[in-house]
Amino acid sequence: MKTLTCALALLLFLSSCGKEVLDEHTPGRHKKDSTVLPDDEEIYSVEEFINSDFGKQKVWVAGYIVGACSRSINNAEWEQPFSHKTAVLIADAPSERNIERVVAIQLRNNELKNTFALPLHPENLHRRAAFHGTKQKYLGVPGMKKDIDKYGWKDLPRED
Rank of each mutant, 00 (worst) to 15 (best):
A9H: 05
A7E: 13
P27A: 05
N110K: 03
E77P: 09
Q136G: 00
I50A: 03
Y44T: 01
A9M: 09
N114Q: 02
T5R: 11
L107R: 07
L112V: 01
D160R: 12
A129K: 05
S45H: 04
G140L: 06
M1A: 01
D92L: 08
P38N: 08
T115C: 07
Y64E: 05
P157R: 10
L107Q: 12
N75I: 04
N74D: 15
T115G: 00
W60D: 14
S45L: 02
R29P: 00
N74W: 02
M144I: 04
A68H: 10
G28M: 06
G133L: 02
L120K: 14
V102M: 09
Y138D: 04
A104E: 14
T26Q: 07
I99F: 00
G63V: 09
T5S: 02
F116H: 06
F131H: 06
T86N: 13
P119W: 12
R29M: 07
G67Y: 14
V66H: 12
L89M: 04
D149L: 10
P122F: 13
F54D: 10
D23V: 09
T134M: 14
T115V: 04
Y138L: 01
P142G: 01
P27Q: 12
R29G: 03
E42L: 14
V36C: 07
P38D: 06
W153S: 06
P81E: 14
T115K: 15
L118W: 13
H126D: 02
L156N: 00
A130V: 04
A9W: 14
V61P: 14
P157W: 02
Q80S: 12
L89C: 07
Y138F: 15
D40G: 01
K31L: 14
A117P: 07
N110L: 05
L89G: 03
P27K: 10
D160K: 08
W153Y: 15
L156R: 13
G152E: 06
T86M: 12
L125G: 06
R97Q: 13
Y64T: 08
E123G: 10
T3Q: 15
R127Y: 02
D160M: 01
L11S: 11
V61S: 10
D33C: 04
I50V: 01
V61H: 03
C6Y: 08
W153H: 11
C69W: 00
Q80K: 15
A62Y: 04
R101P: 00
N124A: 06
Y138T: 08
